[in-house]
Simulated assay, not measured.
Amino acid sequence: MQPEDIYKLRYPIGDFAYGSVFTPEQTQEHILAIETLPKKLTDLVGKWADDRLDTPYRPEGWTVRQVVHHIADSHINAYVRVKKALTEENPTISPYEEGDWANQADYTLTIAPSLVILSNLHLRWVTILKTLTTDQLQRTYYHPGSQRIFPVSEVIGLYAWHGEHHYQHIYQLALRNGWL
């Protein structure tokens, strides 16, 4: 497989543009993407059997099961980070090793708990996001792993991208395998 093919499998919607400034309209689109992800993901994988869930989305990539559990873990962290940014002055967040998390025993579970977590977490998260003022969208946190400050508006864009990025991993796998 050519490097450009691997890149397309890893980044089906391209890279996230860190440091981007988003318009209020773009932020509303990002919030809508976060809001609709749980249902969209559940509609795609909610009835899949283990053979599909245990299929890697690319060579040497995570399985669908791992991706679904990862989305839940990642978005839990994002939700907490946003709440910290809204309630503390530029807090330093705690990074985590997502690859190590993907090798924990809970990643072997059925995906149902993670789909339920995503549904309920996104309900709470979007409830907050829809009420943010312009000033609140500019509140920040510091990420020591990347050594940069993230405004909430960028975090919203990042996690709209993150959800679609992983959704497309699974969707493109389903297309390639004739599962749709």
Score class of each variant (00 low, 15 high):
residue 1 M to S: 14
residue 1 M to G: 12
residue 2 Q to W: 05
residue 4 E to I: 14
residue 7 Y to R: 13
residue 7 Y to G: 06
residue 12 P to A: 05
residue 13 I to H: 01
residue 16 F to M: 05
residue 20 S to W: 02
residue 21 V to C: 11
residue 23 T to Q: 03
residue 23 T to K: 04
residue 25 E to Y: 05
residue 26 Q to A: 08
residue 26 Q to C: 00
residue 29 E to S: 15
residue 30 H to I: 09
residue 30 H to R: 00
residue 32 L to C: 08
residue 32 L to A: 14
residue 35 E to L: 11
residue 37 L to N: 05
residue 40 K to R: 14
residue 40 K to P: 05
residue 41 L to C: 07
residue 41 L to M: 07
residue 45 V to H: 00
residue 45 V to I: 04
residue 48 W to E: 09
residue 48 W to G: 09
residue 50 D to R: 01
residue 52 R to D: 01
residue 53 L to G: 00
residue 56 P to C: 06
residue 58 R to I: 12
residue 58 R to P: 09
residue 59 P to I: 05
residue 61 G to I: 08
residue 62 W to T: 13
residue 67 V to S: 14
residue 68 V to Y: 04
residue 71 I to M: 15
residue 74 S to I: 06
residue 77 N to V: 13
residue 79 Y to T: 15
residue 81 R to H: 01
residue 81 R to W: 06
residue 83 K to P: 05
residue 84 K to W: 01
residue 85 A to Q: 00
residue 102 A to R: 04
residue 103 N to R: 15
residue 109 L to C: 03
residue 110 T to S: 14
residue 112 A to T: 07
residue 118 L to P: 11
residue 118 L to S: 02
residue 119 S to M: 12
residue 121 L to T: 04
residue 124 R to I: 06
residue 124 R to W: 07
residue 124 R to Q: 10
residue 124 R to Y: 05
residue 125 W to R: 04
residue 127 T to N: 12
residue 128 I to D: 12
residue 131 T to Y: 01
residue 132 L to D: 01
residue 133 T to P: 00
residue 137 L to Y: 10
residue 138 Q to S: 08
residue 142 Y to P: 12
residue 143 H to C: 09
residue 143 H to M: 11
residue 150 F to L: 14
residue 150 F to I: 09
residue 151 P to I: 12
residue 151 P to A: 12
residue 154 E to D: 11
residue 154 E to F: 10
residue 158 L to P: 10
residue 160 A to E: 01
residue 161 W to K: 08
residue 163 G to M: 10
residue 166 H to S: 08
residue 170 I to T: 08
residue 173 L to A: 06
residue 174 A to D: 03
residue 174 A to Q: 09
residue 179 W to R: 06
